[in-house]
Amino acid sequence: MKAAVLDFPGSNCDFDMYYALIDFGIDAKIIDARQSNLDDYDAIFLPGGFSYGDYLRAGAIARFAPAMEAVKKAADQGRFVVGICNGFQILTEAGLLPGALRMNAKAGFICDQVLLNVENDNSLFTKNLYRQQLLLPIAHAGGNYYADQETLTKLHANRQIIFTYQDNPNGSIDDIAGIVNEKGNVFGVMPHPERAVDPLLGNIDGRPFFESILQTSGVLN
């Protein structure tokens, strides 16, 4: 499995993501977001950070990066697209995921670990996840997910809500922490599984998440 980790100006979790992927033996590369061809990659990861300084709104400018056309193409072709934190914000701004991320309900940046419920254990990203809950780091000021009632109804009906917060830290509607698109191959999540893969850092709950993706894509048995 070949994976691209996109590097936008202001991305700061690109190396965390890269190390998590190579730790699982994935052929991963950090790719400059000015590159417009991502045809070689089976999976594309949009990392956390503050792309383009979060100017205008988080993710609002990143959606114009040349690589985003290639991300759209990958999404249309059913390849894996994963956006974490700022990557999730970029995917909503680009229209690849529904809804939007508002500022946290209680103003300010939250840096913590939170327990997540696995709401849908049959998605491409979770069908090999053997856990009902995960403890993952969060680090965001704008992680307060919002979708209008019509969109929410669809998200519930199509089982597009993948993770919810047990103890909602940011005001997200329906405690939503991570969703997929209607087709199920584009995933956005605020918490950081890539920061929880090494026992040295005290938490390895991110590992089952990556293992699940790898099993689904046939890389791991």
Binding site: R102, M103, N104, A105, K106, A107, Y146, G171
Partner: peptide, 13 residues
């Protein structure tokens, strides 16, 4: 501005 239905936490602070 935010839509009236959207909480403005910075405004509150």
């Amino acid at each position: 501005t935010y839509k009236p239905s959207i909480l403005d936490p910075q405004g509150e602070v």
